[in-house]
Amino acid sequence: MTTHQLKLATEPFAAIASGRKTIESRLYDTKRQKIQIGDRIIFTNRDNSEQTVTTEVVGLLRYATFRDLFSHNNPRKFGSDNVEWLENQISEFYSIEDQKIYGVIGIEFRVCQ
């Protein structure tokens, strides 16, 4: 089991801490390719590094694009009711070109007690 560190803005961090968000979406780059089921991820609030949530990876959802990932899964698991909103949010971080190069991953997790 490996422990990974991921930083999040306050809103998605709070959604994970409250249990509303159970899938984190990222580019499937070399860093995320190392994540395996059973690994732990420590999410840190980017705006307050003392706030952390430890989770266990329970699923890995590979897709070609974020549109595919969000469309084939319940958007509530990503912290929203709306696929279009999720796509707009993620487009601020990842280009279509990068999605074509790497693909994307939905990292499904449960909060550790």
Rank of each mutant, 00 (worst) to 15 (best):
T2Q: 09
T3S: 11
L6W: 08
A9T: 05
P12V: 02
P12C: 03
A17G: 04
G19I: 07
G19W: 12
R20G: 02
R20P: 02
K21W: 10
K21C: 02
K21P: 00
T22H: 01
I23L: 05
I23A: 07
E24D: 15
E24G: 08
S25D: 13
Y28C: 08
D29A: 00
D29S: 08
T30S: 11
R32P: 06
R32N: 06
R32T: 09
Q33T: 13
I35S: 00
I35V: 15
I37S: 08
G38S: 07
D39L: 03
I42G: 02
F43H: 04
T44A: 10
N45S: 04
N45E: 14
N45R: 01
R46W: 09
R46L: 13
D47R: 02
S49G: 07
S49C: 06
T52I: 14
T52A: 04
T52G: 02
T55P: 09
T55W: 05
E56D: 12
E56A: 01
V57H: 03
V57M: 05
G59P: 06
G59D: 14
L60I: 10
L60Y: 06
L60Q: 11
R62V: 02
A64K: 15
A64Q: 13
A64N: 11
A64M: 03
T65A: 06
T65N: 05
F66C: 06
F66Q: 06
R67P: 01
R67T: 11
D68Q: 13
F70C: 01
S71Y: 14
N73V: 04
N73I: 07
N73Q: 07
N74F: 09
K77V: 09
K77S: 13
F78N: 03
F78G: 03
G79L: 06
S80N: 15
S80M: 09
D81N: 14
N82K: 02
N82H: 11
N82F: 10
E84W: 08
E87I: 14
N88E: 14
N88S: 07
S91D: 11
S91G: 03
E92T: 09
E92Q: 13
S95H: 01
I96H: 10
I96S: 10
E97V: 15
Q99N: 06
K100G: 03
I101G: 08
I101C: 08
Y102T: 09
Y102D: 13
G103T: 14
G103F: 12
V104P: 05
G106Q: 03
I107D: 05
I107M: 12
E108D: 09
R110M: 11
Q113R: 11
Q113F: 06
